[in-house]
């Protein structure tokens, strides 16, 4: 057994461990937001470990270097797209009104939304007043 296959096997093992942690986090965490935390982070690093590990493993086992560049491209695409999908999901969850866990400390986003709504409301009132003024004239 060569060193390359040993490194590959260790990387795949680490990746599989993080997959298990990610799946366990889905069960143990209390709400959507905390579940997203464990799911995105551990699943991303787990995939990186398994994919690149498979590429390195192939050097020792099959004797082919052509796996490495392909696995690298796949890993980079995963690394770039995974956080964006996580962001889209968590934002959609917040927008559709999924509540935070009751142990949560602060919610600055709600405060910001409220102040924004207040500004919009004032703007709307002003516009209405202006339109009425124009009608009167």
């Amino acid at each position: 057994m060569s060193i390359a296959s040993l490194i590959g096997q260790v990387l795949v093992l680490i990746g599989a461990f993080f997959y298990v942690v990610s799946a366990l986090g889905l069960i143990r965490m209390p709400d959507v937001y905390n579940r997203m935390q464990t799911a995105t982070k551990s699943a991303t690093l787990g995939s990186l470990g398994v994919i690149i590990g498979a590429g390195i493993w192939a050097i020792g086992e099959v004797g082919s270097y052509s796996w490495i560049p392909k696995t690298l491209v796949i890993a980079i695409f995963l690394l770039l797209t995974n956080p964006i999908s996580a962001h889209a999901l968590i934002r959609a969850a917040y927008r559709s009104g999924v509540p935070l866990w009751e142990g949560s400390v602060v919610d600055k986003y709600k405060e910001a939304e409220k102040s924004l709504e207040r500004v919009e409301g004032i703007k709307g009132n002003l516009e209405e007043a202006l339109e009425e003024g124009e009608k009167d004239e």
Binding site: M29, N34, L100, G103, D107, K108, K110, A112
Partner: peptide
């Protein structure tokens, strides 16, 4: 389960 979540700016 030592978590203390919240949304910050």
């Amino acid at each position: 389960r030592p978590i203390n979540p919240g949304i910050v700016e």
